[in-house]
Amino acid sequence: MNLFRLDASILPGSSASSEIADIAQAEWTSAHPGATVTRRHLGTDALPADAWTLATTGGFTPEADRTPAQREALALGAALAEEVQNADAAILAVPLYNYGVSQHFKTWVDLVITGAGPTTPLLKGTPTVLATALGGGYGPGTPREGWDHSTPYLERVLADIWQADLTVIKRELTLAATTPGMEPLRDLAQQHHTNALTAAHTAGRTLAGS
């Protein structure tokens, strides 16, 4: 058994999305002691910013004419795609930044798609947990309803393109405890936190049993 775990927080020591993912992973590993866990942390070990450009241009270049950098980028894309495809289960911890996904995560997705092909269902039928955290509130009726451009994108990639058997755990209002002006939202934020941790335990157990 092989669990693929990816994190994208730039603040790993206090990451709300990683907290959720840690719980789900603990449930999975307790059911599969000694199994392989493949880790990739994009926030602390970012991929080269120019890798996707090099891989894309390399793909349109005859093999004999490719530069060493293009060959390296193409090999990186293939290796990243293989990590995903080899997973028996997957956990991704991806927070919202500036209303979307981080450049680190987008680079990873672009490279994986370059390595595997744009329509390859890398996670077809694979039980997958997406843990995502949002500093504010973006639900119906909120002032910034519709500003979450991260979660829909993640669902399109993971569930629609890669065809994962996807469970989404979303925790909102993570900044309420420390941000002036958000004091009235702190009770609601705590409820979001509690619900997310409960959902993480449940999702992890389901992941382990799939």
Rank of each mutant, 00 (worst) to 15 (best):
A177R: 15
G59I: 02
P152F: 08
E83A: 09
G58L: 01
D160Q: 15
A16R: 13
Q70M: 12
P121T: 10
P48Y: 13
L92P: 12
Q103M: 02
T202E: 09
I20Y: 00
L47G: 12
A69G: 04
T167A: 10
A90C: 15
L123E: 08
G77C: 06
L122R: 13
K170D: 02
R71K: 11
W52R: 14
V109R: 02
Q191F: 00
T61M: 02
W52H: 15
T126H: 04
D165A: 13
A177S: 15
A200E: 01
T57Y: 01
P121W: 07
L173C: 13
P140L: 07
T151V: 13
A26P: 02
T36P: 02
H201V: 10
A133K: 03
I20F: 01
P121L: 10
A69F: 03
D22Q: 08
T142N: 06
A64K: 03
L47M: 14
A16I: 00
P143R: 11
V37E: 02
R156D: 09
L154G: 07
A8S: 15
G204L: 08
A73P: 06
V168G: 08
G77A: 12
L123F: 09
A200L: 04
I23H: 00
L3A: 06
A87Q: 01
R156L: 11
R156V: 13
E27K: 00
E19L: 11
A46L: 14
L197F: 10
G13M: 12
Q25A: 08
Y99K: 02
A26W: 00
D160R: 15
K124M: 08
T29F: 00
T179P: 04
D160H: 14
T107V: 05
G136M: 02
E63H: 06
L6S: 04
G181A: 10
T120I: 10
W28R: 02
T67W: 00
A8G: 15
V109L: 01
S15D: 02
A55Y: 03
A189H: 05
A177P: 13
E19M: 11
A51N: 11
R144W: 06
G181L: 10
H149P: 05
V84F: 09
S210P: 11
L166P: 10
T107M: 00
Q25D: 01
P33R: 03
E19V: 10
T132F: 01
P184E: 00
G136F: 00
L74S: 05
A69V: 07
L130I: 09
I10M: 13
L123I: 08
A159V: 09
R205F: 01
T142C: 06
W52A: 15
T151P: 04
T119R: 15
P184K: 06
D110A: 01
F105E: 00
V168K: 05
L154S: 10
G141P: 08
G181S: 11
P143I: 12
P184T: 05
I10Q: 13
D45G: 14
P118F: 12
A177T: 15
L188C: 04
Y138K: 08
G117D: 09
S150W: 03
T67L: 02
V157D: 01
P48I: 14
R39T: 14
L42D: 03
R39N: 12
A78N: 05
L111M: 04
A87E: 01
Y99P: 03
G137R: 09
